[in-house]
Simulated scan of single mutants.
Amino acid sequence: MTFLNVVLDPPAYGWTDTNGNLSKPTPKQILTEFFSRLNIFKNKKNWLPFMSWSKVIVSVPFLMLFIFEYFSWSLLAVAFVYSMIIMGTHGTIWHHRYCTHNSYTFKNKFWRFITQNLTISMIPEEIYVVSHHVHHAKSDAPGDPYNASGGFLYCFLADVNHQPIAKNLIEKDYRSAVKLMVNTGVTANTYEQYLKWGSIANPWRTILSWSLNWLFWGVVFFLIGGPGLVCAVFGAAGVWAVGVRTFNYEGHGKGKDMRRDNYDFSRDDMSINQLWPGYVAGEWHNNHHLYPVSARTGFLPHQFDLAWCYIWTMHKLGPVSSLNDSKGEFLENHFNKK
């Protein structure tokens, strides 16, 4: 726990107040922190959150062109499916279950690369993975980077205000942070490079990877459906990237205890199972907190899990060499005891 106490860069308003309780900043404090941490002219070590939000900004012209130039109901349907289902499910498959929790393994690096780039790249692995380990260690407690008790804005802007790694880690702690990223395939900076850039990821390799990913999918969608399809899906990817930032606030009851008996079985935090994130992205969140290393979180008959469908299919076909499935343990230890 000591390492996880220091691995994230604390905001100016701190994790706790003078009494040791969650520090609840005002909206003004949150916004001030947000824009300060996006300022790459003030500190070049802010480059990663700046790049993450730059992807959102760059997607806006695509969205505007889709709405005002290429709009059609069929393209709107494509945009909806791509944003809500394909992007959402991929986030669960890649960032959540593989990169962070190692709930399954690939046969080789080729299939890892394919899975990583199945969709338009929007969320940097480093911002997601390291902070998510802290989230599980401190769920709904001070230090949880997206503690729902801090309010909507506290969670929505957490990727900038709370999730980047600390800029002054000692070398031992930096090495530990790098180990958390081992599944991502991201080539880590040396400690000297980390001190220069304030990140595990190297900015030039990250920008190159982003550019090649967007170029590839831009060409593919253009060849399939022309500029209208390109604008629809890239705009939809931006919408998803904004919407996903609301997930943990909703998924932890908006700071209230919304857990239901005989349905939300994990009682160590405020996570809840929700139908919409569950069906469109396989995010049965309370189940996940109960069994975080399970590649399946849809344990009950009605809990359809698209992410699990992909992982299971890849396992049957061979690209996924092993996986963890906690459904049997869940049914034995929780559901069948009702």
Rank of each mutant, 00 (worst) to 15 (best):
Pro27Gln: 09
Lys28Gln: 12
Gln29Gly: 10
Ile30Met: 10
Leu31Met: 14
Glu33Phe: 11
Glu33Trp: 10
Phe34His: 02
Phe35Pro: 08
Ser36Val: 01
Ser36Phe: 04
Ser36Leu: 11
Leu38His: 03
Asn39Val: 05
Asn39Glu: 10
Ile40Gln: 07
Ile40Gly: 01
Lys44Thr: 09
Lys44Phe: 12
Lys44Ser: 12
Lys45Phe: 04
Asn46Val: 00
Asn46Gly: 01
Trp47Glu: 00
Met51Gln: 13
Trp53Glu: 14
Lys55Trp: 04
Lys55Tyr: 04
Lys55His: 06
Lys55Gly: 06
Ile57Leu: 15
Ile57Gln: 06
Ile57Trp: 10
Val58Arg: 03
Val58Ser: 05
Val58Ile: 15
Val58Pro: 01
Ser59Tyr: 04
Ser59Lys: 05
Val60Met: 14
Pro61Ser: 12
Pro61Phe: 09
Met64Pro: 03
Met64Ser: 09
Leu65Ser: 11
Ile67Glu: 03
Ile67Val: 14
Phe68Met: 04
Ser72Asp: 12
Trp73Thr: 12
Ser74Asp: 06
Leu76His: 01
Leu76Gln: 07
Val78Gly: 00
Ala79Cys: 08
Val81Pro: 11
Tyr82Ala: 02
Tyr82Pro: 02
Ile85Met: 09
Ile85His: 02
Ile86Gly: 13
Met87Arg: 01
Gly88Trp: 01
Gly88Phe: 01
Thr89Ile: 07
Gly91His: 12
Gly91Tyr: 14
Ile93Cys: 07
Ile93Met: 11
Ile93Pro: 01
Trp94Ile: 08
His95Gly: 06
Arg97His: 05
Thr100Cys: 11
Ser103Val: 03
Ser103His: 09
Phe106Ser: 00
Phe106Thr: 00
Asn108Leu: 09
Phe110Ser: 03
Trp111Arg: 04
Arg112Gly: 03
Phe113His: 09
Phe113Pro: 07
Phe113Trp: 15
